[in-house]
């Protein structure tokens, strides 16, 4: 049997995350999870993504963005960090179409995107902090660092580390702990599902499971751990 490739492994991790969320990752692997606190919004109706990061820094200049798009491996998440605010649009329908053809797992822009109506039909999750119809037209300054390390939103985004997003938010996991974090989250999810099933089947409430009454009477500890 041949050993799994990096692409095989990444695909396995993605499949595992399909049944999970950032909440399970944060609960089960809190010490290996860093929240990314940016006001990012899904721009084409696809609020979930995960994959290894491929960050680049620009200042309203398309050239670093094009360099990064050209270099980002299939399955990666392109992170465009614009140091200029307000931002001109760094990604639109053509840029994202190329990302889709290249098999990228998503695009996150700390800055603006545009062409939202067209992005809806493209099966690559796109997030941004801003939207504008004004396109970045400058292609003046090439980046010497593609991909780059970016410190932002309380997190350090290193190439290869994994980013996860869903309706609850964004978080980052160092690449050498991704497998452990997802496995632990999957175990947590499985046991949570068992508890929910028990509540439904037996009619026992959360107050019963936590012995809330006993706790309030000073007779018991509060809580249960799945």
């Amino acid at each position: 049997m041949t050993a799994p490739t990096v692409a095989d492994r990444d695909a396995q991790l993605r499949r595992r995350f399909d049944g999970l969320g950032c909440a399970q990752l944060a609960d089960a692997a809190g010490e290996f999870v860093t929240p990314l606190r940016l006001d990012l919004r899904p721009r084409n109706g696809r609020p979930r993504l995960c994959g290894p990061l491929f960050p680049v820094v620009t200042a309203d200049d398309m050239l670093p963005c094009l360099q990064a798009l050209a270099s980002a491996p299939a399955g990666s998440v392109l992170f465009l960090h614009n140091t200029t605010t307000p931002s001109e649009a760094l990604a639109g329908d053509i840029f994202v179409t190329s990302a889709a053809v290249q098999g990228l797992a998503g695009i996150i822009v700390n800055g603006a995107v545009r062409d939202l109506a067209d992005l809806r039909d493209i099966d690559v999750p796109v997030f941004s902090t801003e939207v504008t119809f004004v396109s970045a037209r400058t292609t003046a300054t090439r980046s010497e660092t593609v991909p780059a390390v970016v410190d932002i939103g309380g997190a350090t985004l290193r190439p290869g580390d994994w980013i996860f997003a869903d309706e609850d938010g964004f978080l980052v996991v160092e690449q050498h702990r991704v497998s452990a974090a997802i496995t632990a989250a999957a175990v947590l999810r499985q046991r949570e599902d068992g508890l929910k099933e028990a509540i439904r089947d037996t009619g026992r409430t959360l107050a019963d499971l936590t012995d809330l009454t006993g706790f309030l009477n000073g007779e018991a500890d509060l809580g249960f751990v799945p």
Partner: peptide, 30 residues
């Protein structure tokens, strides 16, 4: 428990020097 299982997984990964292969195992294996 669900909140400490991560430590056990990391312990095993550190013990063996390799990340676990998710595809090979049912969760009950843990």
């Amino acid at each position: 428990n669900s909140f400490t299982v991560i430590r056990m997984i990391v312990f095993i990964e550190d013990l063996t020097g390799a990340q676990i292969d998710l595809a090979e195992h049912d969760l009950e294996t843990f």
